[in-house]
């Protein structure tokens, strides 16, 4: 019975709210005048000005099970709070449909801006167009959207091509004069990874150009899915077909750690050096333990902060870089030894 009473009570409250709601007044949102300092004066009804709460920013993250995107979200929230905005974070779980639904809710809730890590470069287009039609600016972070007709107001990501070049340099550094055979663990689905491998190959090709001996030869490029178990499977197969590989470039930390497990199982840990990408906590830890030689590390914290700063600039009508690519930095064991984050 209690349940029922509560239900009636809420219904009554709801109807009461309906009854007194729909006004047709006008509010003075801001009033600037030269001869007085009063800034807000509601014309009638309640005033609407709240200085604290400027609005909400909706952030649909690719997946919150990957710490990288969690860091972006946390830093966005922190930065936004400084400017008086609130960030709503949702997990799109790598599903375009879920992400589209989340964008719909941000539109319904009248967000000041929407930020996404697109789950798919193309299929997210229609959802972005809806936000465009509602006049809400859409910003992408880390991953880009290339759908035709979808208007992206700003993008902040990693300079993946430059990062790939750094990875190539690290590979040259670790293999030394001897050179050797290299396996690439790819994840072709992600444009960011395509750029990483392109950068990597460019540096390796340039290195090989005037060289008779000690060349670095990329013998295989397999799909490691960007995941530990896929990286493990691909590497296990590769060391069967190319038992004498000496280097592996993995496009992220999880697949690199999968590769390491495979090397361990095959007893080839000392023969094969791994260069990875990302600089997530377990990746950094692996570098400290010598499992991975080096990572070009990304800065998801800066990514989140700059995204919010761009949104604030946009809403202020100021100029901002429409595409910001944050350079990566090479992180080796010497850096890991000094890193207070690691044990």
């Amino acid at each position: 019975m209690f349940k029922r009473q509560r239900q009636w009570a809420s219904l009554a409250l709801f109807l009461a709210a309906l009854g007194c709601s729909r006004g047709s007044g006008v509010d003075v949102s801001v009033s600037v005048s030269s001869n007085s300092n009063t800034t807000t004066a509601p014309a009638h009804g309640g005033g609407e000005v709240s200085k604290k709460q400027q609005g909400i920013i909706g952030f649909s993250a690719l997946t919150l099970t990957n710490p990288f995107f969690k860091i972006i979200a946390e830093n966005m929230a922190e930065e936004a709070a400084k400017h008086g905005y609130e960030v709503i974070v949702d997990d799109a779980n790598r599903d375009v449909k879920t992400q589209s639904e989340q964008i719909d809710t941000y539109i319904t809730r009248g967000a000041a801006a929407i930020v996404i890590n697109p789950c798919d470069r193309l299929s997210i287009g229609p959802a972005i167009k809806k936000a465009n039609e509602a006049g809400i600016p859409v910003f992408t972070s880390d991953l880009q959207c290339v759908a035709e007709g979808a208007k992206i107001t700003g993008h902040v990501g990693t300079d993946n091509f430059g990062g790939g070049k750094l990875a190539g340099e690290a590979m040259i550094e670790v293999l030394g004069e001897a050179g050797g055979k290299v396996l690439v663990l790819h994840f072709e689905q992600a444009q960011s990874c395509v750029l990483r491998v392109d950068g990597f190959r460019e540096v390796i090709d340039a290195y090989n150009k005037d060289r008779e001996s000690g060349k670095i030869e990329i013998v295989a490029q397999l799909d490691g899915g960007g995941l530990r178990d896929e990286g493990f499977k691909a590497t296990s197969a590769a060391i069967q077909s190319d038992p004498d590989i000496t280097g592996i470039f993995a496009i992220n930390d999880p697949s690199a750690l999968g590769a390491y497990a495979a090397l361990e199982q095959a007893g080839k840990v000392s023969q094969v050096k791994i260069v990875a990408f990302d600089g997530q906590l377990d990746g950094k830890q692996a570098i400290k333990e010598g499992k991975i030689y080096a990572d070009p590390i990304q800065f998801p914290d800066r990514m989140g902060q700059i995204t919010v700063q761009n949104i604030v600039k946009y809403l202020n009508g100021e100029d901002f870089e429409q595409v910001t690519l944050i350079p990566t930095e090479l992180y080796r064991k010497s850096d890991a030894d000094k890193d207070p984050e690691l044990k």
Partner: peptide, 19 residues
């Protein structure tokens, strides 16, 4: 621009769910 007012329609209360 020293005497400017920004005017907008008043809001009304309604469930966002039922829009």
């Amino acid at each position: 621009l020293s005497n400017v007012q920004v005017l907008k329609p008043s809001s009304y209360t309604w469930p966002t769910f039922l829009t």
